[in-house]
Amino acid sequence: MAKSLHNLLPQEVLSLAIAVETRNAERYDTFAHIFGSYNDEATALLQEMRDEELEHKTVLEAMYLNRFGDKVCDIDESDVDEVVEAVDVDSAEHLIFNDLTKRDVLEAALRAEEGAREFYISLSESEQDEELLQLYRRLAAYEEGHVAGIKARINQIGTEKGA
């Protein structure tokens, strides 16, 4: 039975964040596989984003270890009702028209990272516990860094032909 995010423990929230990064890495990998050979540039970018998600996961795992020790908290996206951050392409017909661009990939990544940032900001707004508040703010700032990074990349490719 899936829970609402409202009812999660902080330890579960951080575990969920790690699971989300893992699952997003899998999603990027799946999309890279699907779009492989349709568009080399977009596929390479999808693989790059997958690797970035795995890096995010490593950072969050270190954060978890530091905050909660090595006590495993077994929670996954499937245990919650809401979607926190899930990277998704914006059209069902990208393969038909063979029109997935680097910009599309980055915008998909941006939507997912913004979703995650909003999620942590929301949690921090209602948190009373100072230590937890700091944790959520740190996570929100961490996601904000990703958002800024992706926005910079979108701006960078803005003038590239075929981007």
Partner: peptide
Amino acid sequence: MQLRVIQP
């Protein structure tokens, strides 16, 4: 709490 997550 007003969680600004993606709604179902």
